[in-house]
Write a protein that binds this DNA or RNA. Structure first.
Lengths: 270, 270
DNA sequence: CGCCAAGTTGATCTAAATCAATCGTTGTGG
DNA sequence: CCACAACGATTGATTTAGATCAACTTGGCG
């Protein structure tokens, strides 16, 4: 049986700020080390070794100590903690969130297999956000200092890291676009379509999936209130675009939903 | 006299999408090459060579072909163009903006001396946004392929590039925070304070500066309408926090303005 | 000097927030 | 195993911040 990070006793969402070295502790007491191997990982085509040869991927393996399990609701790291590892999500999913000095919080991202956690910590050597598992999950810790060293003698690794960072910037700009000039329905539609696309890239169905996050998390991510998200979803349901029960979501008419993303499905007026 | 990029005939803000190789053309017909030299640059402490030794900074010089001037209102690059150079702003300022397929646009950033333009292009090898000069400006083009090559044999350069990319992610997340959970007054206050801080780091006064962008640009950047920005500014003026005339801005009470950023200046309720 | 773009201010409207009640699920302890 | 507590989700009623529409001023530039 593998060691796991204990589920902190606070509720899944309102968790404020416990320990700090939970991850290190978890690694330390692993009994049967889980050997991480990019070479054999199901999502290596989406992750850091994207486009690498077998040899190159094998070199990357040397960076990764051991996989770490994170229980649903537990934090992988908190804002302010020093950067030691980036984390590749191997299995499961996470949300990252930011809390401003006055206590208002915002979900800045939902991450799934192949995504890299901790990129925003590189700038200050401290994590800028907190990462919380949305389900029982597994990550590959990547020592950042060793990653930088290896990248120096390994151009394609460096290039991939650059692209990963840049892609996050592009994604954030798209998010700003959504926050800055789209209404509630358009935001929720964009969210549903975006999730669908991410599931497809991971080999899952485009049409049916399980939302791992609460309505509140979705609302925060989209700059809305949870009631507003509920109402947008209900509207799409009434229009026959989706059906759902709680977090079980099915997309009935993907093209129509995609059309909702822009101009609420109305033809551009020309 | 140096060759300059011609001021495109369209207005400064609503410029849609002309040429494409304006920059390359401008470089080609330089008669008296302006030699770029990080070594002697006033803003090297804010730019890519941050923290470099003299020797290291000199190596960076080899990357930069020639400085390029960009006239107010002209585009340095457009979304969709292939990435050839990153650009360090040497003098002046720029806005970057994104246009969605349905024509809605958003200003994603204002850049000033020492800032790097084009980071979001690394992910796809094409520029994701357009960059327009807000005043007559000057940039140092940095060949990206040569930058990556040099970074391979020059760890601190690689590290600085990583940090630059990561800092942009942090900045975008802060922007998302502003868009997601702050009201108009808080956003405008945050904008004014943020600008002030950036001017200070460049050796200018914290209290008085010239806004190089229109109310419309500010509004777009903050996810508001220009009328709303006007009204927030008027409110701060009436409260005695600022005075301004058009784009000439003076901050009278910086602490009070900073307090406005959170909870509209109201004390947190325990 | 005159014109056009940028900025300001007011009146009105509306999308989303807020407040509130209810329902459904999940998980826990008796 | 069931009852109940607690949380998450849904839907309705009301309020409000900011958008929209509109009129007017200012000022910069040819």
């Amino acid at each position: 049986m593998h060691t796991v990070i204990a589920h902190t006793s606070c509720g899944a969402s309102g968790c404020s700020a416990p320990s700090g070295d939970s991850v290190q502790a978890a690694i330390a007491i692993h009994i049967q080390p889980m050997v991480a191997a990019c070479t054999t990982c199901a999502v290596n085509g989406l992750c850091l070794p994207l486009g690498f040869s077998k040899d190159e991927t094998a070199r990357l393996d040397t960076l990764i100590s051991q996989r770490v399990k994170v229980k649903k609701g537990a934090a992988l790291f908190h804002a302010g903690e020093p950067l030691q590892h980036l984390y590749a999500v191997r299995l499961g999913s996470f949300k990252t969130h930011l809390v401003s000095p006055d206590g208002r919080g915002l979900v800045t991202g939902f991450l799934m297999s192949g995504d890299i956690l901790g990129l925003d910590a590189i700038s200050t050597d401290r994590h800028a956000c907190s990462a919380v598992a949305l389900e029982d999950s597994e990550v590959c810790p990547i020592s950042f200092s060793r990653l930088e060293r290896l990248a120096g003698e390994f151009p394609s690794l460096q290039h991939n890291l650059n692209r990963m960072l840049s892609r996050e910037i592009v994604r954030d700009h798209e998010m700003l676009m959504i926050m800055g000039c789209r209404n509630a329905d358009e935001r929720v539609a964009a969210f549903l379509v975006g999730l669908s696309q991410r599931f497809v890239r991971r080999g899952y169905s485009a049409h049916g999936y399980l939302l791992r996050m609460s309505r509140e998390d979705i609302a925060s991510y989209l700059g809305l209130r949870l009631e507003t998200v509920c109402r947008s979803l209900a509207r799409f349901r009434d229009m026959g675009l989706i059906i759902y029960q709680g977090r079980v979501m099915e997309i009935l008419d993907l093209p129509a939903l995609q059309a909702q993303v822009q101009y609420g499905g109305k033809q551009a007026l020309i």
